[in-house]
Design a protein around this nucleic acid. Structure first.
Lengths: 213, 213
DNA sequence: CGTCAGACTAGAACACCGTGCAAGTCCCGG
DNA sequence: CCGGGACTTGCACGGTGTTCTAGTCTGACG
């Protein structure tokens, strides 16, 4: 940031990269909802038009945020001896990095740019799938199956339950359920979900069906 | 709708149920994005304040829409001889009814009220899980695993790809991928996804790991 | 028959949002 | 010196959810 202030109090020296950087910081610190063109402009001590001049539109800004975020998502080392273990590890990397970057992940999810964000990690996953011997349609099927599984758990794990009224949260829904369900099951459903545990068993099952032992 | 028009041209006789009904119709015919307080008021030939008087807030309105929608989701007959088949059928009912009500489903998804919408169908699913012999934690684990799987595929299947710029759609991302991935796999990934097929194989795998044969 | 409370509606306004337009100001090369 | 592009500003438009005030209507009660 080599910005300066002119004699008339104007702020200058900012470029597109600065916009994206502070927007990214804003999302990370205060969540996707805080990313407003006016708010970003205020953060940069500039008017909204300056932001528009550099960035074009809100959609373009978000795409750029996701794109630069994607490069920050470090490629993680894949461990494991068997193909199944390695594929599982690659899938878990997606899960882990999404949880470590909740704000950007949900921003990408809201704008439908998730594949852009996770493309690197998906690439690593495909690589392991191919290393396990799958090609073409079979590899595509395995990838999409695993990705959807990961994605499904992410929407559950990333949802902020504290923002919705208590009486219509899943736990509350189940605890008021009467009918032909055993009490112990209802009690188990009234407890908070251990996303990690459920994810692990499900992922293992999905990987096992695609990747030969 | 027993609404009347007074001498001064006012419209009256509407109640909360009418608001919810036309809001529901609006969402179904023009999508979640069309549900605006002003738009709904115009549809009812009334000012927004009238809507607010009856309904309270937008969130309350949406919750009510989902709630009445939930009662409309008919309980479907569960077929299948084995426990696995019946559990799979119950899970597929959730998938089917979500696809048949795309607009309301994505509205519920955006507002985090999906469990409210699908609670009836989830109940049927739990019933089959218990019928298969699971109780307590094991039943809860199976339910949540299956529900997340279904949910993951729904976000993929319900996403409207035509609304996002072509160059950052998954297919485009993969077709420009260079690296250590075989050509036939890249080609398979560049083709549109057969959600139905991927869902079926994944669901089978997840059900099989929880429900004993 | 009068009137009075409550149910219901209208109009205007507030504070936001994304975005576009016209008018500047700055700085660097000719 | 000065002209033109890079850059910034102020203002405006139409849209959103929501709230306030001021009504008008309707039915019950005295």
């Amino acid at each position: 940031m080599t910005d300066t202030t002119t004699s008339t109090g104007r702020r200058t020296g900012l470029d597109r990269a600065d916009m994206v950087a502070t927007a990214l910081a804003l999302v990370e610190s205060e969540g996707p909802g805080a990313l407003t063109m006016r708010r970003l402009a205020a953060e940069l001590d500039v008017t909204t038009n300056t932001v528009y001049w550099h960035v074009g539109s809100r959609d373009a800004l978000i795409t750029e945020i996701i794109r630069t975020s994607a490069t920050r998502l470090a490629d993680r080392a894949i461990t494991g001896a068997t193909p199944r273990e390695r594929v599982t590890a690659a899938a878990r990397h997606i899960w882990d990095s999404a949880l470590e970057n909740r704000a950007i992940t949900s921003l990408a999810h809201q704008t439908g740019t998730t594949p852009l964000l996770e493309h690197h990690l998906e690439l690593a996953l495909v690589h392991e799938i191919e290393a396990a011997g799958l090609r073409g349609d079979a590899a595509a099927l395995a990838l999409r199956s695993i990705l959807s599984t990961v994605g499904g758990f992410l929407v559950g794990a990333l949802r902020d339950e504290s923002s919705s009224p208590a009486e219509l949260r899943p736990a509350a829904l189940w605890s008021t359920t009467s009918g032909d369900i055993s009490d112990e099951t209802i009690e188990a459903l009234s407890l908070p979900t251990d996303h990690e545990a459920v994810f692990t068993t499900t992922l293992d099952a999905v990987v096992a069906v695609h990747i030969p032992a």
